[in-house]
């Protein structure tokens, strides 16, 4: 049992190694990208793209989130277990949103009040 635990701990090491330190340049570039995306999303919002206003705004927001969690939150160095937990968390959020939207969208179908 101890042997097994030790092995898995070591396997964990091998997966991510020691925690590398990013350069200032990396962080500065990420900041510049994030600021540019903010200006872009604010400008695009003033143009009428119909339905695509939402797509663009959320697309840029998701892109910004990816930059923040990947670089600033060091997810690119995180363990597989941490990533798995994050992805499963997002999955639960998607379940919450999907089921609620499905309920909301189909409520009128049976002509029952509620």
């Amino acid at each position: 049992m101890d042997q097994h635990l030790e092995q898995s701990a070591h396997a964990g090491h091998a997966a991510h190694g020691e925690h590398p330190i990013d350069s200032v340049r990396t962080y500065a570039l990420v900041l510049v990208v994030l600021l540019c995306l903010t200006i872009a999303t604010a400008l695009v919002a003033t143009i009428d793209l119909g339905f695509f206003n939402i797509v663009v705004a959320l697309g840029i927001a998701v892109t910004k989130m990816m930059f923040v969690i990947w670089f600033f939150m060091h997810v690119r160095y995180s363990t597989t277990l941490t990533r798995l937990v994050m992805v499963s968390g997002v999955l639960w959020l998607i379940i919450l949103l999907t089921l609620a939207f499905a309920d909301f969208a189909t409520r009128g179908w049976l002509n029952v009040l509620g």
Binding site: T38, A42, A45, M65, V68
Partner: peptide
Amino acid sequence: LYWHFVDVVWIFLFPLFYLIDRH
């Protein structure tokens, strides 16, 4: 991690409240 998370929440609040229906 906490600080960046709060930042990410705002990254979504900003477009949803200020931007989407601007046009």
